[in-house]
Nucleic acid binder design. Sequence first.
DNA 1: AGGCAAAGTCAACACACCGTCGACAATTGT
DNA 2: ACAATTGTCGACGGTGTGTTGACTTTGCCT
Lengths: 227, 227
Amino acid sequence: MTSRARTPEAGGSGDGTGSRTGRTRRFDDSARKGDRRREQLLETAERLLETHAPGELTIERVAEAAGVSRSSLYFYFQGKWEIVDQLIERASQQMFERDRTLEATSDLPSYLRAIVTAAAEGWRQHRVVFLAATERSAHADETTDRWRSTMGRFADAIARRIDAEPDHAAAVAALGGSRAAAEIVCWMVERNLFMHFSRPHRRAETDQLVGALAVAALRIIGVADRA
Amino acid sequence: MTSRARTPEAGGSGDGTGSRTGRTRRFDDSARKGDRRREQLLETAERLLETHAPGELTIERVAEAAGVSRSSLYFYFQGKWEIVDQLIERASQQMFERDRTLEATSDLPSYLRAIVTAAAEGWRQHRVVFLAATERSAHADETTDRWRSTMGRFADAIARRIDAEPDHAAAVAALGGSRAAAEIVCWMVERNLFMHFSRPHRRAETDQLVGALAVAALRIIGVADRA
DNA sequence: AGGCAAAGTCAACACACCGTCGACAATTGT
DNA sequence: ACAATTGTCGACGGTGTGTTGACTTTGCCT
């Protein structure tokens, strides 16, 4: 990587409002031209994902669809995958916010049920982005993988919630502890939702699957469900 | 696809011994030169996967490592992914054979435990191929995806086994039936093993995970486990 | 033995995409 | 108003892909 005078955002994990290059920003911040363009490029990319598989999403196509030259795009992003990463970041952010409100929910069963539902809702809304995310996490090494770390955060949240109710300590111990159990549950949900949403699906089928996954999650954690 | 005088194997789902081009084969079939080369190319590819990520596995590298020209390779395979597909086919074949012997095993808990162990064993032996398979199943559309259909066959086997023991009918009904339950279990196991084997891992950790997954599977199906 | 079709091989071409450089144009704070 | 910063682009060099057509080798047939 030859030292290069990159300017906007520096591609990091979305701080979004950080101090811009040590420069004071106008008060009524009518975003810089570059900010708007960056935004537009992301939107274009997401739109293109609706019709093209992530593998067919090329820098060239995004640039063309957005009406800029290919090289201009490199001013904003390191490459295709950085665009995808940012889309993932945005989409999962929404899920997290939903989760934060959920965490206060009454009992563990309701919480698990709610979180599975929220995950499915995320998939429904950002299907193409999540599909791309999954594809990406196959390539990427663990340290640079947004999707893995997103799931990790969910596992943390679930583990925390399990620990809050000591009743389940015994059941969860057989799985290697609350965190290990939470991780198993997370990937179970993720993989099954992926398989569901990567092919044609009807709403009723989605609901059916969500219900089943919630029950499965409960049983894994050791919560008796009355069907 | 311009009509092309392809000869060996025609790339199909491994019939392997079918009538070769309507020509009578020598009795002591000491494989044709092409058969040997084909074999050699597959071995070379698998060997290369040990050191190169599937994304870096290029036709060029395989050809070079095998000592043929790139264009010769196209005589045998349609492209990189056809090679990978055949490797997947071989590897999963072994798992199935193991499963066949397992299916006779005494009770459902033992069977599930055994099948998870067998899966992990498959991963241990063919790690790189399975990683590639997972990566591929993100790209591929379902109809052309070996890995998905491999998992489907496992789900079938498990579902059959569940149905054989009517005790669990009720528990499994809450998940949408035995087949749906089996599928959830399959993908749970697959995804968690993938996550485990895609980063550095110690044998003890693997065993730990296998145990946990077996317990989780049992609980999902509704079999009470005594820890 | 020798002829011949099929099997196998390759160099060369045409293409798609990627990432970078350097020169140029627009924007923006002061 | 003007200089630094930010944004834009054409052109280049690179890697990998997939195809074509002409060539050599193999192995069956008489």
